[in-house]
Structure formats: structure tokens, C-alpha cells
Design a protein around this nucleic acid. Structure first.
Lengths: 271, 271
DNA sequence: AAACACTGTTTCATATATTGAAACAATTAA
DNA sequence: TTAATTGTTTCAATATATGAAACAGTGTTT
């Protein structure tokens, strides 16, 4: 029995995978992971060296993937890169459902710990698009609806997402935003909003204190992918009556833990 | 030797594949092809029945792909669908990362100006491969799907791309094409198609007048890179009821403006 | 011109992984 | 209860993947 095989079996045992998984398929996708932005092209021998696999094996795997259109081979350099088949398959993925299926259990966990309503949102056309929601177990329900958008400047989710935009994108977003007054606490001046966003980016979380709706407070943190790009935001929201200033720290900690769990699950996913 | 294996070997021989390809990997990607827009979710037994494979084999393949994140399993229905891993890999393909991410905003701009559905396509194996699409804001949706291929001889995109092939490549392409009748307007004679392609190359744009589908008209222009190689085509498509002959000029102008913007953005990129 | 260093590719005995019928487990419907 | 679904596991039979070595190119250096 080759060493590699022993290691694989050991890995399977340790990770609790008792199922008999298809080795070749796992190897194929493991190989595809080496084709990234940093190094999108590989030759047979260099890839074999990098992965530690035999060059015959690597050659046949690459040839197989090429014949399927999963990889393509540059005719001149004879190097391989990711092919149109993956583009095709990638376009078929329903990201909404694929993403939520990963994040939903995390939201549930966070909601149980915080015992308030938890939201997951992304920025879409400079508004907050609600991707998923777990209702507070305490009963008091919010009127937020999955699949709808709402203004970004007056919610915790929105502010943390705006705060992490690239400078140019933020400038563009601020220009297109109309700061309507929702409550006496709503931020209605762009200079003030700008300063608050800077502060939010530094402190790593955002609080909405009744800026959208009287009596509603929410705390939000960013969700990163494994490239450390902010791709979503996670928040806990509840009635201001229940809200205690000294709890903010613990809310943020729980939310950040959830955000990290999501980060581990989703890889390099980007909306 | 099982029958299935004999058939596979026969297939390999007939298609001129002498190389020893990895069976399991080929089967895995063959399986993934069953997850399409028409049927995005599959259970173990129904997929086994559809593919003609054994249900144990199918089960293990699906479980393997799920453990890799290539598929995801709905917890309630226990059915499988395409997962985030494929989305991630699809986004790493150079056509996505180096091309579509650049061209998408241009398509959006063109679609807003023309207020019809806009497509971006390339030539792949003598067919039109749909790279990107912006739906018409007018609502009437076309059944085109990103990541799929369709015949080149009966679409605006295809005709403009064929027209700009090198003579030798065009000759080869025309030989391999089968001019099937889709509508009463479809070009079915190669001599006529040849003449039309010459005309199209001279005038700089192509029109498909209900050649693929009754009631569907589209106008297409070539997209050049900075080496002045035609690398893609840009089109506007809509119902023939809305189509006015005198608008062609303005459509072509807007499309060409978009094509030039893309040219500036992408440098010497080649598909 | 010969030797070298670097590619990708093929061979073949052998070790390994995949296969499928059957049995099992767990739900749901009649 | 019976019947008809579903997903899952088992194990011997068998097809398949493996890797060292040889081969076949290409371009570079001696």
C-alpha cells in the first residue's frame, strides 16, 4: 500500500468520513483547486511536483479533464487552464439557494444564542437585499421579508456593507442615495453618514439605533469570504426596550463567530 | 467484462480517443450535465434510472460530489443540486474573470439604451456559445441561457462571427454545418449563406430576421480586441412586432459603441 | 555536433478502487 | 398491516488507476 493511500485513509478516518467516496473524483477537484488567480496555468510536471503526485497520473488526469472541456490546453505553451465547461456549470448554479443552504444553519445557531431576530443581507444596487432571516424565538416579529430590498443608509446591515465598499464605489453609492427621514434618529446628512461609515469600518460593526423604525435597534457585522472580501452582512435586531448598551459587545462577538463560520463554509464565493 | 464497459471502449475507439482517460472523472462530469435549468434537482434513484447506471454507483458518486461541495443536498427533500464549488470554479475561468466581469456593465448600458435583450457570444466548435445576457427591461423574455451553445448559421451573433473567420476556418466550419430548417426564413443553402456572410463582413453587422425562431429578430456587431481580432459578438434581440427597419442604423450605432468600449477594456484578451 | 535539460506521452505488471446484486433501514401511502 | 417508495451499506468479483521506466520530442549549452 502506497504512502499516499495510507494518508488518505487516515484522513478519512480522522474527519469521520466513513462513506466510501470516489477517490478519482475527489482527486480531480483537488487538482482543479490549484488553478487560481495567482496561478491560472499549469504544465504537467510542475503541477505533479506541486501536488506531490506522480506525473503519469497527473498527465492522465489533466488529459481527462481537457477532453471533457473542464480544462483547456493552450496550443502553444501546452499549459492547462480552467475551461468553458466550468463556466457553463458555474452559470447553472442557483447561488441564492446554494448560498443560503450553507448559511442558514449558522443563522439559526446565532439566533439561538442571541435570542433575537437574525438577518443576512447583501448589497444589491446600493440597497440591502435580504437573503435570509431567522425569527426571534421571543415572538416579537419584524416586518422584514426575505427577497426584498431596503435602503442601506438607515440599517445596521446597510451601513456595515457601505462602510466596506471600495472608495470609488462608495462615492458612487453615496451620490445615488437619497437620505429620507424615517425617524428622529435617521441620519440625513451625507457628511455625517460618511464620518459614521469611517468609524464603523474601524470598529468592525455597525449599530442602527432606531434610524429606520422607532423602537427598532440592530447590530451588524461583515461576512468575509476566504479572500477576505466582504460579501454579506449578518445582524441581530430587536426592540429597543430589550436593548442594553452593555450587551453590544457580546452581540458583536456572537455575530462575528457566526460570520467566521460562514467564511469557512463558503470558500472564495463572491456574489 | 460488463456490457457498459464494452460500449465505452467502443465509443473511445470510434471517437478516435486512444488515450487512457479516467473513467470516474468522466462519469462525474457526465452526471453533472443532468443538472440543468429544466431539471436542477435529482434524487439518487431517479438519476440512476435516467442515466441507466446502478443506483449504488450513483449514490456514491453523488455523495462524493456533495462532500466536495460540487453538489449540495437539500435537507428536507434529500435531493441534490449544483453547489457553490462549481460557482466558485466557474468564476475562476478566464472568460469570466478576465472578460465577462469587464463586459457585463457595458451590456447593461447597451440594454438600457436599446431597451431590448442584449447578448454576448463567442464561437466555440463552430457554434455560438452564450457568454453573457441582459434581459430586456420590457419584460418579454427570451429562452437563451448563458453557458449554452446554439447553431451559428441562423443567428445574428453566429453570422457575424462566421463572417469574420479566416478563409480556411470558414470553409471548414461551413463543411461541418448542417443547415436545418427552423422557420420559413432560415437560410438552408450554403451558397446563399456564403454570399450573405460576405455581405455581412462588408457592412459590419448582421441581422437575423426570424431565421431561428418565428417572431424573433436580432442585430449583431463584432467585438474586437486591441489587436483587432474578432473575439466575440454583441447583439440586441427582440420580437419582430417591435422591430422597425428604420431603427437598424441606431441599433447598430449603439452596439458598435458598446463593442468599442469593450475593446478598450479588454486589451489583447483572446478567448 | 554532441551532450544536456527540459518538456509531454506511453507502456505494462501490479496494487487498488469501483462495481452491482442483494440486504437493510427508514418513510410515506394504501 | 401491507405495500411501495426512498436512501444507504455490504462484499466478492472485476475493471481501473498507478508509477517507474522508457520514449519522443524541443530547445539550450557545451
Amino acid at each position: 500500500m502506497a504512502l499516499e493511500v495510507q494518508v488518505l485513509k487516515l484522513f478519512k478516518m480522522k474527519s469521520g468520513i466513513s462513506k466510501s467516496l470516489n477517490n478519482s473524483v475527489a482527486k480531480a477537484f483537488h487538482l482543479l483547486d490549484y488553478f487560481n488567480v495567482a496561478k491560472p496555468e499549469w504544465g504537467v510536471r510542475e503541477l505533479a511536483k506541486e501536488t506531490g503526485a506522480n506525473k503519469s497520473t497527473t498527465y492522465r488526469m489533466l488529459a481527462t479533464l481537457e477532453s471533457l472541456g473542464v480544462l483547456r490546453k493552450d496550443e502553444i505553451s501546452e499549459k492547462y487552464s480552467l475551461g468553458l465547461k466550468l463556466f457553463e456549470l458555474g452559470n447553472r448554479v442557483s447561488i441564492q439557494s446554494a448560498f443560503v443552504s450553507q448559511t442558514h444553519p449558522v443563522l439559526k445557531q446565532v439566533a439561538e444564542e442571541i435570542t433575537e431576530t437574525v438577518h443576512l443581507g447583501i448589497l444589491k444596487d446600493n440597497e440591502v437585499f435580504m437573503v435570509d432571516k431567522i425569527e426571534s424565538p421571543k415572538g416579537l416579529q419584524l416586518n422584514s421579508v426575505i427577497g426584498t430590498s431596503s435602503p442601506a443608509y438607515c440599517s445596521g446591515l446597510g451601513k456595515i456593507l457601505l462602510a466596506h465598499l471600495k472608495q470609488g464605489d462608495l462615492k458612487q453609492a453615496l451620490e445615488s442615495i437619497d437620505l429620507k427621514t424615517n425617524t428622529e434618529f435617521t441620519i440625513t446628512k451625507k457628511t455625517i453618514l460618511k464620518k459614521e461609515l469611517e468609524q464603523i469600518k474601524i470598529q468592525g460593526y455597525a449599530i442602527d439605533r432606531q434610524e429606520l423604525e422607532l423602537g427598532l435597534i440592530c447590530v451588524a457585522v461583515p461576512v468575509y469570504n476566504q479572500k477576505n472580501q466582504v460579501i454579506a452582512a449578518l445582524s441581530a435586531a430587536g426592540p429597543s426596550i430589550r436593548f442594553q448598551e452593555e450587551k453590544v459587545e457580546s452581540y458583536v462577538a456572537t455575530l462575528k463567530k457566526g460570520a467566521r463560520t460562514i467564511q469557512q463554509k463558503i470558500g472564495n464565493f463572491k456574489i
